[in-house]
Computed example of a mutant assay.
Amino acid sequence: MTAPEKGRWYWFKNWLHYHWLYLIVAAVVLWVGISWLANALHWGETLPDYQIAYVGKSSLPEDTARAIESAFAQYGEDLNGDGAVCVRLNQYVSDTEDKENASTYALAAQMQFLSDMNAEESYFLLLDDPAHFQLDYQALANWDGTPPGDSDYTAAGKTVCWADCPALAEADLGTYQTTVLGTTVTGENAELVENLYLGRRAFYEDAKAEKAARAREGAERLWQNLTKGANP
Rank of each mutant, 00 (worst) to 15 (best):
T64D: 12
T64L: 08
A65G: 12
A65V: 14
A65L: 06
R66W: 12
R66G: 00
R66F: 07
R66H: 09
R66P: 00
A67E: 05
A67D: 11
I68V: 15
E69G: 03
E69T: 03
E69R: 08
S70R: 11
S70W: 11
A71M: 08
A71R: 08
F72P: 01
A73K: 11
A73Q: 07
A73W: 14
Q74S: 11
Q74D: 09
Y75M: 04
Y75W: 10
Y75C: 01
Y75N: 05
E77T: 06
E77Q: 09
D78H: 07
D78S: 05
D78G: 02
L79F: 04
L79Q: 10
N80H: 12
D82N: 14
G83S: 11
A84Q: 12
V85Q: 02
V85Y: 05
V85L: 06
C86F: 13
C86W: 13
L89C: 09
L89T: 05
L89M: 12
L89R: 04
N90Y: 10
N90V: 02
Q91F: 06
Y92F: 15
V93T: 06
S94P: 02
S94N: 05
D95T: 02
D95P: 05
D95N: 14
D95L: 11
T96R: 10
T96L: 05
T96G: 12
E97M: 04
E97P: 02
E97L: 05
E97C: 02
D98N: 15
D98L: 08
E100P: 04
E100S: 12
N101W: 07
A102E: 12
A102Y: 04
S103G: 15
S103C: 06
S103K: 07
T104C: 07
T104H: 07
A106H: 09
A106G: 12
L107C: 03
A108G: 02
A108N: 07
A108F: 03
A109L: 06
A109V: 02
A109S: 13
Q110H: 15
Q112K: 14
Q112N: 15
F113G: 03
S115Q: 15
S115W: 14
S115E: 15
D116G: 07
N118A: 14
A119R: 15
E120I: 00
E120K: 06
E120N: 09
E120F: 04
E121Y: 06
E121K: 14
S122A: 08
F124E: 00
F124Y: 04
L126M: 07
L126P: 00
D128Y: 03
D128Q: 01
A131P: 00
A131T: 01
H132D: 10
H132N: 03
F133N: 00
F133R: 00
F133Y: 13
